[in-house]
């Protein structure tokens, strides 16, 4: 390429690039046409139903959950985010002592959102919640007890 050919080629390519950015700039001045950012606290975040925010335990309106305390999730968890504390309670119907869930402790700070616990759960007691507003100033608040106080096992889960 000749000396002046190079110059003109250079200016041409630079102008091509400027047309691309300019093509976004000028519509953005008045109409904000190509603005892709979301003004988060003002506009709600778009979260899809399958989003893995944190593990929660489902409770029905009678404050009953489906967790039998079988510890399958605790075994499946790769990094010890789940601890199950269980107790022996006397079953009012049969009168026998039975293994029951006392506390389902979930360390959100250690969880890597791998879904293995939810997959391992035989009774579908735990599930993903899309909540992602988990920031706290205290790390201790990230250790949660998933079963609500006073909740008990839903009837008919163990069959």
């Amino acid at each position: 390429m000749t000396y002046f050919g190079k110059i003109f080629y250079g200016i041409k390519t630079l102008w091509t690039g400027m047309k691309v950015t300019g093509g976004y700039f000028f519509p953005n001045i008045t109409r904000k046409k190509y603005v892709i950012t979301r003004q988060y606290p003002d506009e709600p975040a778009v979260v899809f139903p399958r989003f893995k925010g944190e593990v929660v335990m489902w409770h029905n309106e009678n404050n009953e959950h489906r967790c039998t305390g079988c510890q399958a999730c605790e075994i499946a968890c790769p990094n010890g985010s789940i601890e199950i504390i269980w107790k022996r309670e006397v079953d009012p119907e049969t009168g026998k002592k039975k293994k029951m869930l006392d506390q389902h402790i979930y360390h959100l700070s250690m969880c890597t959102m791998c879904s293995l616990c939810i997959q391992a759960c035989p009774t579908n007691a735990i599930m993903w919640s899309t909540n992602f507003h988990n920031a706290t100033y205290d790390r201790g608040l990230l250790t949660k007890v998933l079963n609500k106080p006073g909740s008990k096992l839903m009837a008919g889960v163990e069959e």
Binding site: R50, F51, K52, M113
Partner: peptide, 12 residues
């Protein structure tokens, strides 16, 4: 990705 796998980067 998020719709199907529930995560955007570390999908597992």
């Amino acid at each position: 990705m998020e719709k199907t796998t529930g995560a955007r980067l570390t999908m597992s």
